[in-house]
Amino acid sequence: MTSRTDFGQQTLGSEVAKVFADQIRGKTVLITGVSPKGIGSSTALNFASQTPGLLILASRTRARVEEVASQIKEAYPTVKLEIVLLDLGSQKSIRQAAAEVSRLTDKLDILVNNAGICVVTRQKTPEGIEQQFGTNHIGPFLFTNLLLPLLRKAGKTNPPGATRIISLTSAGHRLSPIRFSDYNFEGGKEVPPEEDHFKPLAGAFAKCTEDGYNGIVTYAQSKTANILFTFYLQKYLPSQGIAAYTLHPGSILTDLSRDQDEELAAQFYKVAPYWKSPDEGSSTTLVAALDPALNDTKGLYLVDCQFTEPHHHAKDPVAAERLWRLSEELVGEKFALTV
């Protein structure tokens, strides 16, 4: 249980930041996917409002992240702020960004894996991985593991569980488990029933491109991966003082939906009962990152500032182990979580 059961769907992230100001003050915080009008910018502004020791904003587009940085500097001129360029779809960029973060600080108290994409046509990363799986999961997997030494250092001095890894997912994870037999969705392979996506999908959600690509299903797979990744981290990191949580921020009008056509956008409007402002959309991230009461729970996944259960395929320990090994294979490096 969280410490504020009154927090919910319409709670503002700015309110959460004020309530847990002591958990921000003096801390080193890194947020990925920071761009104007998005959840990342609202999350960054709300962290900045309570005097962190260092706020690092990571984004793949310099102009966009600099726009947010300017807003923060204008509102909170005393906050120490750094910018890191990070393209989570490129493993080369990820390694460069992690090295830059290590030059900026020797510890990291809070990592918010906020960045994500949603595309409707088949694309691949430079490494040949399906773009959504590569950017939404493999990217944060590699970035987080490369930053673990900084998180471990913070974990040694912070109260247990105050050092945190927060990863944003989506309620859409329920539509698909990990398709280990065909994670790139290339087709031509027999997919076991337990790996196949939810059927039947209706309307625009069921539409595929001419080459058989369904962006909704591949997005869902990547979001299941976010939860399984966090589930695996929870198995090993608490002994090192590090907590990990994942969350669905809600339905928010951001640039994430810029590739959707009118039909797909209309269907999303039908299934989402409430559309949040970016400030409301950042609230669950801030609860996950800051609420001390979470250290006394077994929770994994939050929605509307409270714990709930993800789909069973997103907390399967066998799938979590398989995903970790597959992820190591795809980045060409093994990571030991035990020390």
Rank of each mutant, 00 (worst) to 15 (best):
Met1Leu: 08
Thr5Phe: 11
Phe7Leu: 15
Gln9Asn: 11
Gln10Tyr: 13
Ser14Ala: 15
Glu15Thr: 15
Gln23Thr: 10
Arg25Ile: 14
Lys27Trp: 11
Leu30Phe: 08
Thr32Pro: 02
Thr32Met: 05
Gly33Thr: 02
Val34Met: 06
Val34Gly: 12
Ala44Gly: 11
Leu45Cys: 11
Gln50Ala: 13
Gly53Thr: 02
Gly53Trp: 00
Leu54His: 14
Leu54Ile: 01
Leu57Lys: 03
Ser59Gln: 03
Glu66His: 13
Val68Ala: 04
Gln71Asn: 12
Pro77Ile: 04
Val79Gln: 05
Glu82Lys: 15
Val84Phe: 10
Val84Gln: 06
Leu86Gln: 07
Asp87Ser: 05
Lys92Cys: 02
Gln96Arg: 11
Ala98Arg: 09
Ala98Gly: 05
Ala98Thr: 05
Ser102Asp: 01
Ser102Asn: 04
Leu104Lys: 15
Lys107Ile: 00
Asp109Gly: 09
Val112Ala: 01
Asn113Asp: 04
Asn114Glu: 02
Ala115Gly: 05
Val119Gly: 07
Glu127Tyr: 06
Glu130Cys: 14
Gln131Ile: 15
Gln132Gly: 07
Gly134Thr: 08
Ile138Phe: 02
Leu142Met: 12
Phe143Thr: 12
Asn158Pro: 10
Pro159Arg: 15
Pro160Gly: 08
Thr163Phe: 05
Ile165Val: 14
Thr169Met: 08
His173Leu: 05
Arg174Tyr: 10
Leu175Arg: 04
Ile178Asn: 10
Arg179Asp: 01
Arg179Gly: 00
Ser181Ala: 13
Asp182Ala: 04
Tyr183Ala: 05
Phe185Val: 02
Lys189Arg: 09
Glu195Tyr: 05
Phe198Lys: 04
Lys199Gln: 14
Ala202Tyr: 10
Thr209His: 04
Asp211His: 01
Tyr213Arg: 00
Asn214Trp: 07
Ile216His: 09
Thr218Trp: 07
Thr218Pro: 01
Gln221Thr: 09
Thr224Lys: 13
Phe229Glu: 02
Phe231Arg: 06
Phe231Ser: 10
Lys235Phe: 07
Ser239His: 12
Gln240Asp: 12
Gln240Ile: 00
Ile242Glu: 09
Ile242Phe: 11
Ala244Glu: 02
Thr246Ala: 07
Pro249Gln: 04
Pro249Cys: 06
Gly250Ser: 04
Leu253Phe: 09
Asp259Pro: 01
Gln260Ala: 13
Gln260His: 15
Glu262Lys: 15
Glu262Pro: 12
Ala265Arg: 15
Ala266His: 15
Phe268Ser: 09
Phe268Val: 13
Lys276Gln: 08
Asp279Asn: 09
Glu280Ser: 08
Gly281Gln: 07
Gly281Ala: 11
Ser283Ala: 15
Leu286Thr: 08
Ala288Cys: 15
Leu290Thr: 07
Leu290Gly: 06
Pro292Phe: 12
Asp296Tyr: 14
Leu302Glu: 02
Asp304Lys: 12
Cys305Met: 09
Gln306Pro: 03
Phe307Trp: 13
Thr308Arg: 04
Pro310Thr: 06
Lys315Leu: 12
Lys315Tyr: 12
Val318Trp: 02
Glu321Leu: 12
Trp324Thr: 03
Leu330Pro: 00
Gly332Ile: 11
Gly332Cys: 08
Glu333Leu: 05
Lys334Trp: 06
Phe335Lys: 11
Ala336Val: 11
Leu337Lys: 12
Val339His: 13
